[in-house]
Design a protein around this nucleic acid. Structure first.
Length: 428
RNA sequence: GGAGGAGUGGCCGAGUGGUUUAAGGCGGCGGUCUUGAAAACCGUUGGGCCGCGAGGCCCCGGGGGUUCGAAUCCCUCCUCCUCCGCCA
């Protein structure tokens, strides 16, 4: 959410600040009217309450002194009725007011390029050369089944489409990738590993911005307010929901492996083959909490930490900054890392690293107590997260980039200690 | 799943209808004293909202109710603890 103060003081600039983002302009105009009415009412109701409180105290004094307090009690009762009426109206306004605030997207950072959709994204750097082969490379959805390590058909039988069974070396590799990534981030990049719940409640999903707007993308457990986590961002960011952190605790860096569950509503016909777009996938997530001044640098570092995984594995990639129109709802700035997939002759997203500014912290009430010039005040922290990396897509990249003409696949050196020295996968 | 018990400020803890603007202690911060520190003493120390300001309003796990007035009474939900059962 955006700060009320910000919405109020920058109200005329908002259409410009939110250009190319999706929001309801009519609702925004309505916000302005409601804000004025709400403040007017609040002031008058509070004055009534102050008077009632004074009268009640007077009643107490008189009763203690055995004096008659009938007149005060009657007057207070009348005031009480007026207060109740005013509060009811405020509640109605507050409901509509808050509903609008929830749906307004974050304001992009000034460094974010203009643009309406993915065509407006800008490639900032490339690492490695796209892998070329003297033969026609296969996509992983052919390599995997040929090697007997990816089974799409049986997964469809067991559950349905967009699920996959990993077996043998694929399963081993997936497990090795998780351990490799967590080790790298905890030992070299300074993250604390956490293993959070994979099921989260509605309040947590509101905190990170998935609810209320994006319920259709989630799997909800029947008759509960519990949902399968769509990303570790949700449980890990909400670790500190409703907390006031001490300044010396910041920055906090967590990494977490979790499976992720997404309904993929609206993705019909997109990436229907292979592991790219699944209802269930594994991911190692990086999450940071910083001060307002520290978040831009933390964003660069977090993105570098994700890039390091790709570099250690020798996978060619590029970094893209998303334009205003292609960014997620809660984000102030997002870098996508795209890995080269020779089987598709394209770069595909394998990590998305975002700085949310105070947007999530405001929704989740994550604050930090800061002291300056002897005065202390609570500020909202800045939150960041990024994939480090999506495990399934990393497996895809290893298979497609490591493939040989005979259908075998070479395993990156860095991963071998994590899979019993396995150097290649062969049909067997 | 069954039966009990408990949720008060950073922490401990008092408070069962009316000077509670939540006692007291610990911890934190500032000060006095000291060469310095400790001790002692004094002061200060929760969150949010409205208002230009003076100031006001709300918050004692969440929500609702009773009352002129609720931390305190009632309803409901949540969490934690103890015992039993079951289970990995």
């Amino acid at each position: 959410m955006l700060a009320r103060d910000f919405l109020r003081t920058r109200f005329p600039d908002l259409p410009h600040l939110l250009r190319n983002r999706t929001y309801d302009a009519g609702a925004l105009a309505r916000w302005g009217e409601l804000d004025a009415e709400r403040r007017r009412l609040l002031t008058s109701v509070e004055a009534l309450k102050a008077e009632r409180n004074t009268l009640s105290a007077e009643v107490g004094r008189k009763k203690k002194a055995k004096e008659d307090a009938t007149a005060e009690m009657e007057r207070a009762k009348v005031l009480g009725g007026e207060v109740a009426a005013g509060e009811k109206r405020i509640e109605e306004i507050e409901g509509e007011f808050f509903a609008i605030e929830q749906t307004l997207p974050n304001v992009p950072d000034e460094s974010v390029p203009d643009g309406e959709d993915e065509k407006g994204n800008v490639v900032l750097k490339s690492w490695g050369e796209p892998t070329r082969f003297p033969f026609a490379p296969k996509p992983h959805w052919e390599l995997g089944p040929d090697l007997g390590i990816l089974d799409f058909e049986r997964a469809a039988k067991v559950t349905g489409s967009r699920f996959t069974v990993l077996s043998g070396e694929a399963s081993l590799l997936s497990r090795a990738l998780i351990a490799f990534m967590l080790d790298l981030h905890t030992r070299e990049n300074g993250y604390r590993e956490v293993l959070p719940p994979f099921i989260v409640n509605a309040a947590s999903l509101f905190g990170t911005g998935q609810l209320p707007k994006f319920e259709a993308d989630l799997f909800r457990l029947k008759d509960t307010d519990w949902y399968l986590a769509p990303t570790a961002e949700v449980p890990v960011t909400n670790l500190h929901r409703d907390e006031v952190l001490r300044e010396e605790q910041l920055p906090i860096s967590y990494c977490a492996y979790t499976p992720c569950f997404r309904a993929e509503a609206g993705a019909a016909g997109k990436d229907t083959r292979g592991l790219i777009r699944q209802h269930q996938f594994d991911k190692v997530e990086l999450v940071k909490f910083t001060t307002a001044e520290g978040s831009a640098e933390a964003h660069e570092r977090l993105t570098r930490d994700a890039e390091t995984v790709l570099e250690r594995l020798g996978l060619p990639y590029r970094r893209v900054v998303l334009c205003r129109g292609d960014m997620g709802f809660s984000s102030a700035k997002t870098y996508d890392l795209e890995v080269w997939l020779p089987g598709q002759d394209a770069y595909r997203e394998i990590s998305s690293c975002s700085n949310f500014g105070a947007f999530q912290a405001r929704r989740a009430a994550i604050r930090v107590k800061r002291t300056a010039e002897g005065k202390s005040r609570n500020e909202f922290v800045h939150t960041l997260n990024g994939s480090g990396l999506a495990v399934g897509r990393t497996l895809v990249a290893i298979l497609e980039n490591g493939q040989r003409e005979d259908g075998s696949v070479a395993i990156p050196e860095a991963l071998r200690p994590y899979c019993g020295g396995l150097a290649e996968i062969r049909k067997g």
